[in-house]
Nucleic acid binder design. Structure first.
Length: 276
DNA sequence: TTCTTAACCTGGAGGC
DNA sequence: TGCCTCCAGGTTAAGA
C-alpha cells in the first residue's frame, strides 16, 4: 500500500524518465477515480505541456509543468505509475494514459480506483491551499520529540490512530505505524495523551528510521505495490510486526506470538509483552 | 472539538 | 467448479 516510502520510490523512478518529456495527449479510460475526472480540463491543461520536475509532499506526487501549471496525484491504495516504451499495450486497470511526444506512454494504473488526479493552472498557488491541513514531513527537521509530545497532549485517541492522522504527521500509514510502534515498544492502543516525552522521542526516532530504511529498500510490497520499473519493495522481508500474527516476536523469542487486533478500523500487529 | 465508523472500490482468499 | 462472503486500507464525510 502506498505510504511515504512507496510514493518516494515512485517519485524517484519517475524523476529519471519524465522531466523534459512533453505530454502529447491524454486518454481517460474511465470517468472517475476517487475524484471526478474532467477530460476537457485535463486535456486543456496537460496537452502540450513539458514536465519540469516530479516532487512529493506527504503521500502526494506533484508534477510541475514548465508553464507553472501542474498536477497533484495520489495513488490511493492500489495506484501505480509507469512509463511504457513506444508500442506497449495498456494493461487491465490502466485508468489514464498520457502519450509523450517521443512515443512513450505514461500510465496511471489503479484497480480499486482510490487514487486521485487533479490538474492546476498555477500549481505553486494551489499547493498552500491544497495542503494546508497537512502536518510536518516525518523526515524533516520540524518533526521532533517535542513537536509530537505537544501534538499528542490531551488526546484520548489511540497513539496509532494519531500517528496515522495526516494532520499530526504525514506519510505514516498502517504498515509503518505498526512497525514504528513495535520498534519503539509502545502499545498501539495507548491513549495519545499518555505517551510521555521519552516515549515520543523513541517513537519519532523509530518512525524516521523505519521510513528511511523502507525508502532504501524501495518500499514494501504486500500484494499490490510495484515501482514504476515493476520491481517489488524489499522492506517486506524486514517487517517485524505487520502481517506476522501468530509468529514469534523477534524480540521476545519463542512462545510469545505477535497479536493482531483492529485499532482505528485497521489491522494492527503488536507484541503484548514488549509493547506497553 | 474530538473520536469512531462507514463508504468508496475491486481482486484474492477461503469456505461451502 | 462456481458462488458467496470477507478482508485489505487512504481519505473523507457523517454521526455520536
Amino acid at each position: 500500500m502506498p505510504e511515504l516510502p512507496e510514493v518516494e520510490t515512485v517519485r524517484r523512478a519517475l524523476a529519471l524518465h519524465l522531466p523534459g518529456a512533453r505530454l502529447a495527449g491524454v486518454e481517460l479510460r474511465i470517468d472517475r477515480l476517487r475524484n471526478q475526472l474532467r477530460s476537457e480540463e485535463l486535456a486543456t491543461r496537460c496537452v502540450g505541456q513539458t514536465i519540469r520536475a516530479v516532487r512529493r509532499r506527504a503521500k502526494y506526487l506533484l508534477v510541475d509543468f514548465a508553464d507553472g501549471g501542474g498536477m497533484i496525484l495520489h495513488l490511493g491504495m492500489t495506484g501505480s505509475l509507469r512509463v511504457d516504451p513506444a508500442g506497449a499495450e495498456p494493461l487491465p486497470h490502466d485508468r489514464i494514459c498520457w502519450p509523450l511526444a517521443d512515443g512513450r506512454v505514461w500510465r496511471f494504473n489503479d484497480p480499486r480506483r482510490f487514487g486521485t488526479v487533479e490538474v492546476f493552472a498555477d500549481l505553486a498557488a494551489a499547493e498552500p491551499l491544497r495542503f494546508a491541513a497537512l502536518g510536518p514531513e516525518p523526515l524533516g527537521e520540524t518533526f521532533t520529540a517535542d513537536y509530537l509530545h505537544g501534538a499528542l497532549q490531551g488526546r484520548s485517541a489511540s497513539v496509532k490512530s494519531l500517528i496515522m492522522d495526516q494532520r499530526v504527521v504525514v506519510g505514516v500509514g498502517n504498515i509503518y505505524a505498526s512497525e514504528s510502534l513495535f520498534r519503539a515498544g509502545i502499545l498501539p492502543t495507548r491513549q495519545g495523551g499518555r505517551v510521555g516525552r521519552a516515549a515520543c522521542a523513541r517513537l519519532v526516532a523509530e518512525i524516521r528510521a523505519v521510513l528511511a530504511e523502507a525508502i532504501d529498500c524501495g518500499g514494501t510490497t504486500i500484494s499490490d505495490f510495484r515501482a514504476p520499473d515493476g520491481s517489488e519493495g524489499r522492506f517486506t522481508i524486514r517487517l517485524e510486526a505487520y502481517g506476522r500474527e501468530g509468529k514469534s516476536c523477534v524480540r521476545c523469542g519463542e512462545g510469545h506470538p505477535i497479536r493482531r487486533r483492529v485499532v482505528a478500523g485497521r489491522s494492527t500487529f503488536y507484541c503484548p509483552r514488549c509493547q506497553h
